[in-house]
Design a protein around this nucleic acid. Sequence first.
DNA 1: GAAGAGAGCGCC
DNA 2: AAAGGGCGCTCTCTTC
Length: 650
Amino acid sequence: MVDLALQRPLSFIGVDTEFRYRRPPVLLGRGKEVYDIRSIHPLLLSIALVEPCRDGGYQVYPFVVDVRDPGIAAVLHDLFRIPVCFVGHNLKVELFCFWQLGIPAPGFLWDTYIFEKFRILGRYHPQRSASQDDVDVEAIRAKEEILEQKQFRLSLSATCLRYGISHRFSGDKEALQRSFLIHEDDKLFSPAQIEYSAEDAVVAAQLYIPQTLAAVEIGAQDHLNLVEMPWTRTNARIEWNGFRVHEERAREVTAMIETHQQVLKDHLAEMGLENENSHKQILSFFRSLGIHRHFLRDGKYTFSKKVLKKYQELHPAIQLMRDLRRAGDIRSDKIMHLDLIGVDGRVHPQHQQLGTDTGRQTSRWPNILGLDAMLRPIVIPEDGYGIGEADWSQVEVGVAAAVYGDPELLRMYNSGDVYSAMAQRFYSDQIRPEDLSLPGPEFKAKYKKERNRMKLCTLGMIYGISPYGLSDLMEVPRSAAAEILEGFMSMFPTLRNHLSWAVDLGAIRGHATAAGNVRRYRNSRCYLDRGEQNWLKNHPVQGSAAVIFKYAGNRLDRLYKGYGARIIIPLHDSFVFEAPLEHLEQVAEETCTVMLQALREYYPDLEPRVEVNIDAPQCWNKDGETTALQVWLERWTGVIVEEDSSKEEQ
DNA sequence: GAAGAGAGCGCC
DNA sequence: AAAGGGCGCTCTCTTC
């Protein structure tokens, strides 16, 4: 097979693998099963070599290889070095199989699953139910159906149907897939298993040309080849890399919280509240104290963190509730699930490419992108390695300035600290004249409140906030918020126009557009509600930032190879990396360079800044802060000791 | 007992 | 009438 592949003038190669896992799945409740990707056991590799014929058609040579043979990897090396495109449906698992076999990934990929996901971003988005009525069965069913439809559309058989390609096994695909999961080690494969396996590689190959045409039709072929498809490999590698967790520290934290939680819970129960998480119980508790009216918002009671903090002076129980909630959140974080540690001793969350409608990543099991900052020090490097992080400063503001072409916002972004520059202009009559040209960092320290208001306005502007929402955030009357917002927007007339055009054009066209022509589609042709108006404005910013992020990530993935370094967490606007200690500084420096270049390649008008943090390489952390969790726990413990003693005195 | 909605919290 | 974009996850409470 390899000889033939090397001798023929191939156009591209379809690929598929069948596999099982050596470890049983971890059960996460509600029927969720998560397999340890490091225990993947490749069984069959299917290959479809494709070459052009004189008659204008294509000749396909299908092969199926039993990759349980330990000598096979060495033979396959040469095949994957052929510089043609390798096509497959959800290539992530194929890449896992290759890496498990010790075969380097091919250089040029096309993922037919990712393409289908890409072309329906925003479609099949469950709408908020039209009715406020709780028993709107129709709305619930419709929502379920939409999500099911979306999943089904992305499957290989449904994709084949759409392109008019016949898949011989589409009917009993599931049964065959399952047959591999329970296949015994030395058993031969049945003809059905082998033919099914071959068929998947063949149809994936057959999808390549029609999908390429479809990519041209949506104006995104360049982006797909440059960014999205290479990212499938980068993303798979991040998942394959995973990260190490400090098991002992995790156990300590859990034990410590559990001990003190009980004491505090008892204390709270004495005051009259059994469960700090129960909305119902809190309401009746606060009623009995006569303080419930403070928590009324628009006809509903809310006991969120923010309002509890605001009114904590009303009763000593409130501080207790806040602490208990925080402690409960930390204790129950999925990262504490130590059974998610793979056979390589590392945790491998699923990183879902195009997980969101703007093209951003999502992660789950555990959701490492949403990890409480206090828990970051649970993530530690391998021995001899260090962890670093590099992030673009205020990147979405810069991207907003660039995509909407606002000269004043550009100037402010390029000046150093965008929010300081805004405050210097916005509050020019309230700021001492000598401070009007103060450099960002100094201004930031001196005019904290003013700067923070500008930050709220900026984020609000990108997300489409209303005076109502802003007044809540700034804690000023609505009329004052309206005035601030108006004054703020009037500093950026170009931006204001272009935001409003983004809504109008998006409504007419049917989609919002980001860098690389990454589209997010509307679901209806009728009235734009506020939410839709907002994402039409926001997608160009968030989506473009996501594109640049992946572009930079791809470059880093290739660059890191030379240092034995790896990306471990792709954090929307920052990369967390792990590198051998002797190369950590060099890796950090080159990471900055790549990130700066990437942003400037897309938006040459920007003068971006990247902040790097290798201050505490012994664990992941925020701004070099590694002890926040300990400090918090100690304070918590302190509270108990103090209150216990005061109780005794009484 | 399972499943879903709502409230809430974490991240960017 | 609603009121800031994008997510994943846990807990409570209700319903089937």
